[in-house]
Amino acid sequence: MNFYTRKWVRPEDLNANGTLFGGSLLRWIDEEAAVYAIIQLGNGKVVTKYMSEIVFVSSAREGDIVEIGLVATRFGRTSLTMRAEARNLFTHRSILTIDEVVFVNLDEDGNPAPHGYTDITYARDRVPAAHRA
């Protein structure tokens, strides 16, 4: 799994216990997963369909840096399934794991659409045409 995105835990990200609020972390993961799906599917129109059980293993405190890692595990006809993990950059201790995050590729009308991919790309060759330089 590659960890590309890092987030700094700030005061507004904390819960009443002074630790990272789970909702903030899930928002960060969903956003990063959307970006990952856009690059993997070559389409700027994707939506979150499903997240499996979310397992909080530990927490983070103000000033910590959280790394978010994703890896594609399965390509469906119109979907992409990935695994997610968030960990503390300093300790490498896992904060959260999600076995399945599913995104669906959409057409111009917002309907599920086949994407035609079966493997992970590590290049930028699938960046949507509208966003290429």
Rank of each mutant, 00 (worst) to 15 (best):
H115M: 12
M82D: 14
V55Q: 14
G18Q: 04
L26F: 00
F56H: 10
E108M: 08
A129Y: 02
R61W: 10
I95S: 13
D99N: 14
L14P: 11
D125W: 01
F21R: 05
V35C: 14
L89S: 15
A113I: 10
R74F: 02
D119A: 13
D13F: 00
E31A: 07
T78G: 04
G42W: 10
S52P: 09
A123S: 07
S52R: 04
V102Y: 00
D99L: 06
M82Q: 14
Q40V: 04
E53A: 05
E53L: 02
F56V: 02
I65W: 09
A86Y: 00
V127K: 02
V102E: 14
T121A: 08
V35E: 15
Y122T: 13
D99H: 05
I68G: 14
Y36H: 13
T91R: 05
E67Y: 03
A130L: 04
M82F: 02
P114F: 09
H131Y: 03
F21N: 10
T97H: 11
A72W: 01
F56N: 12
E62C: 08
R61Q: 15
A130D: 10
T81R: 02
A123T: 02
N43D: 14
L25G: 12
N2K: 05
Y122W: 02
I54W: 04
A33N: 09
N17R: 04
L80K: 11
V102F: 03
Q40W: 05
I54C: 07
H92L: 10
H92Y: 15
L14Y: 01
R87P: 14
A84H: 00
E12F: 01
V66T: 14
G116Y: 06
A123W: 02
V66L: 07
K49R: 11
R74C: 12
R132F: 01
T81P: 07
A133P: 10
L25Y: 03
K7L: 08
E62N: 07
F90W: 13
A129V: 04
V55H: 14
V104Q: 05
